[in-house]
Deep mutational scan, measured.
Amino acid sequence: MEVVDPQQLGMFTEGELMSVGMDTFIHRIDSTEVIYQPRRKRAKLIGKYLMGDLLGEGSYGKVKEVLDSETLCRRAVKILKKKKLRRIPNGEANVKKEIQLLRRLRHKNVIQLVDVLYNEEKQKMYMVMEYCVCGMQEMLDSVPEKRFPVCQAHGYFCQLIDGLEYLHSQGIVHKDIKPGNLLLTTGGTLKISDLGVAEALHPFAADDTCRTSQGSPAFQPPEIANGLDTFSGFKVDIWSAGVTLYNITTGLYPFEGDNIYKLFENIGKGSYAIPGDCGPPLSDLLKGMLEYEPAKRFSIRQIRQHSWFRKKHPPAEAPVPIPPSPDTKDRWRSMTVVPYLEDLHGADEDEDLFDIEDDIIYTQDFTVPGQVPEEEASHNGQRRGLPKAVCMNGTEAAQLSTKSRAEGRAPNPARKACSASSKIRRLSACKQQ
């Protein structure tokens, strides 16, 4: 084909351009004929944790799935940006308080904090938690009735009371019990989460009196709706648990309003109706937990002794299953770290194939690490110290990083047969305790 000078094309009309061969290198194709290559998922490591896909996002930050490269346990990490926390009232204080509380709590029905990582340079905090497959609110939203069968609701409620009793025994008032803060594992274990607005009572406090509340409006008791200066913290949790039980068994809320002012007005009056299909035992329990006067409201001991709580409820309806993943529609909620794991395991070791967030990740503290002497050669063979940054567990980050890069360049065919977990650990520049 004859090559045409581009400067001469402006002298031709459209018809003349076609005659000189423009149609031979300008093609129009339908979008259905285009085959897009999927974007390669680059592996990203935060300390010893391999990052997966997004699980959810809230006002405080994002939650992603991660894999512990040492234990191969599935975890969830809450990623918090200090810049964003400053824009939220009491944001930083709530996060630090939640970390302090979770560090000393150990119960099967309370979410466990596994690790805390802090990135000084990017001003990011990573709260590594045990993995929960789904939230209770997500399960309720997945069915038209917006409720659980009585047998399933009873099982979840009993676990909620177990976890709540443990928190109260530790002198902690949750203040925000609701389905949105109750998570579930694949085995059906309920976990109380989000202790950001919780309050730890003084060890020598005479009672459970509280003065502040930041919980969700629909789950607040009349004493808070009416603006009382002080109130019983434990009875606030009992009320919120009662509203939660009402919601998961009926699909409704005892109090509603077009806006928060109308909602608080209705809560302050204390008038509500219980659907007739709840039955006398459940209705009596709800009335005891939603008692207007805090002094007359049920205690956890009274809830445990109630006939509806103690009764064994046979399954009359099919239980609400864990819904498919909202993004991938995966009904099994498979591990989202698998594509990243395959990338590390299947590809040659190259620095361009993975990302390490930083050479140094500070753990379990908000301060910069200490310094240790770096050896410097002298005339008599002895070495003197220069400062060298280290990880919180004493690992020399720069030395590990250099060693990792040197190993990656060394030709050794046997290394390709290593397991995925050992490869992740070798790529991680800074081991965590």
Rank of each mutant, 00 (worst) to 15 (best):
E265R: 11
S240E: 13
A429V: 12
H306S: 13
H107W: 01
L55M: 05
R104Y: 03
K96N: 07
S69V: 03
M289D: 01
T185L: 07
D284G: 06
I99P: 01
G215D: 01
R42S: 06
D115R: 13
L45G: 09
E351P: 13
I79E: 01
L353P: 07
P323A: 07
N94F: 03
P315R: 10
P179G: 01
G346C: 08
T250W: 12
T336C: 09
L252M: 04
I88S: 08
M136A: 03
L245D: 00
A93H: 15
S299A: 11
D53W: 01
E407A: 13
S404H: 14
K97A: 12
A205D: 10
R86G: 10
E138Y: 07
M335R: 12
H154N: 01
P323C: 09
F148V: 03
Q123F: 04
L167D: 00
P387L: 06
K122Q: 01
G61W: 01
V95C: 05
I322G: 00
D277W: 04
D352K: 13
V20L: 04
S404F: 04
N109M: 03
N266V: 04
E342W: 08
Y49H: 07
K311I: 09
A414V: 12
M127Y: 09
L201C: 07
D359R: 13
Q220Y: 10
Y131L: 11
E98W: 01
Q37P: 08
H379V: 12
G52I: 15
A377L: 06
E293Q: 09
E14Q: 10
T71C: 10
A93W: 15
F354A: 13
P217E: 02
D208R: 14
R104S: 04
K178R: 03
I356S: 05
K41S: 12
A200D: 04
L45R: 08
Y156S: 04
C210H: 11
E291G: 05
G58R: 00
I79C: 01
I360M: 04
G21A: 11
G257L: 04
N380W: 06
N90T: 03
Y156T: 07
M139E: 01
E121V: 11
L80N: 05
M129F: 06
R211P: 08
P254R: 01
E342I: 11
V143A: 10
G163L: 02
H107E: 04
G270R: 11
V114S: 02
L105C: 13
S59Q: 15
R384S: 13
E357L: 13
Q382V: 07
A410W: 15
G270F: 07
D162L: 06
L290H: 00
G242R: 00
A406D: 11
E317I: 14
D284L: 05
G233R: 01
K431F: 14
P294T: 07
R383Y: 09
V243S: 03
T185H: 02
G61L: 03
G279L: 11
S19E: 12
C210E: 01
Y166I: 08
I99T: 12
T328D: 13
L50R: 12
F231P: 05
E14L: 06
Q305V: 14
D53R: 14
E130M: 01
D277M: 01
A377W: 04
Y126P: 00
S240D: 04
G408W: 12
K124L: 05
L282A: 04
S283T: 12
V368C: 14
P275F: 04
D348P: 14
A273F: 06
L245R: 00
H168V: 02
D176W: 00
V116G: 02
H345R: 14
E16S: 11
K122W: 11
R310Y: 13
E70R: 15
T249A: 02
S142G: 15
K78F: 01
G381K: 14
G370A: 08
I424K: 09
K48T: 14
G56S: 04
Y126H: 03
N412M: 02
F148W: 02
S401T: 05
P179A: 04
I356Q: 14
K108G: 05
K423V: 09
S378A: 12
F234Y: 04
M392L: 14
S216A: 04
Q170F: 04
E130L: 01
Q137N: 15
N393R: 06
L400E: 14
R415F: 05
D162V: 08
E199R: 15
R106S: 12
R28I: 11
V128W: 04
R301V: 15
D343A: 12
R87P: 09
F219A: 02
A406E: 12
E223G: 01
Y118G: 09
S378G: 05
Q112Y: 06
Q137P: 08
A153E: 01
N226Q: 12
G408T: 15
V77S: 02
F354I: 10
D115M: 06
T212R: 12
E396Q: 08
P315W: 03
M335I: 08
A406H: 14
D115N: 15
V110M: 02
G10S: 08
L285S: 00
R28V: 06
E14W: 02
V116N: 05
E351Y: 09
R75K: 13
D343W: 13
G135F: 07
E351T: 13
E223V: 02
N259H: 15
E376G: 08
T32V: 11
K44C: 07
P281W: 02
I35R: 15
L386F: 03
H107P: 01
R40W: 09
I238C: 11
V3S: 10
D284V: 03
S59N: 12
Q8K: 04
G276I: 02
R384I: 06
P314C: 13
E293I: 08
I356D: 09
C151G: 03
Q159E: 09
L45V: 05
V128R: 01
K96E: 02
I424W: 04
E57H: 13
L54W: 03
A318L: 14
K108Q: 11
A76Q: 02
H168Q: 05
C73W: 02
S59C: 05
T24C: 08
L245I: 03
D53Y: 11
N181G: 00
I29T: 02
V4E: 07
D207H: 11
F234L: 04
K146E: 07
E199I: 05
L182W: 01
R304V: 13
K311D: 10
I111Q: 15
V150H: 09
H379A: 11
L245M: 02
P144M: 08
A218P: 02
V128N: 09
S142A: 15
D237H: 13
V63L: 02
T24I: 06
K122P: 15
E57S: 08
G10L: 15
T13K: 01
R39I: 07
E375Q: 07
G58P: 01
T244A: 03
T402H: 01
D350M: 15
R211D: 15
D350L: 15
Q305L: 14
Q37H: 05
P89V: 03
P294R: 03
S240A: 05
A429P: 03
E2Q: 08
K423R: 08
K122E: 05
P315V: 08
S401F: 12
R415I: 05
L285T: 00
E14Y: 10
Y126F: 03
R104L: 11
L290Q: 00
M335W: 02
Q159M: 07
L54K: 15
V66N: 02
G270E: 11
S31V: 14
L252V: 10
N181W: 00
F148L: 04
D355Q: 09
P319W: 02
N94Y: 03
R425Y: 13
G187R: 04
I79V: 01
P387V: 07
G288D: 00
K48P: 11
K41D: 11
A318S: 10
G381M: 14
N380P: 14
S193E: 13
A273P: 11
L182T: 07
N119H: 10
E120N: 15
R425M: 13
Q112G: 05
V390L: 08
F231C: 10
E407I: 15
S142P: 10
F204C: 04
W308C: 00
S169L: 03
V372N: 13
R147I: 09
I274M: 05
G279R: 04
A389P: 10
G276D: 10
K178S: 03
G215A: 07
D343P: 10
R75M: 00
L80S: 02
C278A: 09
L72N: 01
K235H: 09
E223L: 02
A389S: 11
Q170S: 05
S216E: 00
V372S: 12
Q100T: 10
P314L: 08
E375A: 07
P323L: 05
K311L: 06
D365N: 03
N247S: 10
I274W: 01
F255N: 01
A295V: 08
D359V: 06
V114A: 04
L105S: 10
C134E: 12
H168R: 04
F25C: 15
E130G: 02
Q152S: 03
L105D: 02
P314V: 08
D355P: 13
P413C: 08
K287T: 09
K388P: 05
R383P: 10
L190D: 00
M51W: 01
R75I: 08
S271A: 07
V3I: 06
L427H: 11
D30H: 10
N266W: 03
T395D: 14
P373S: 12
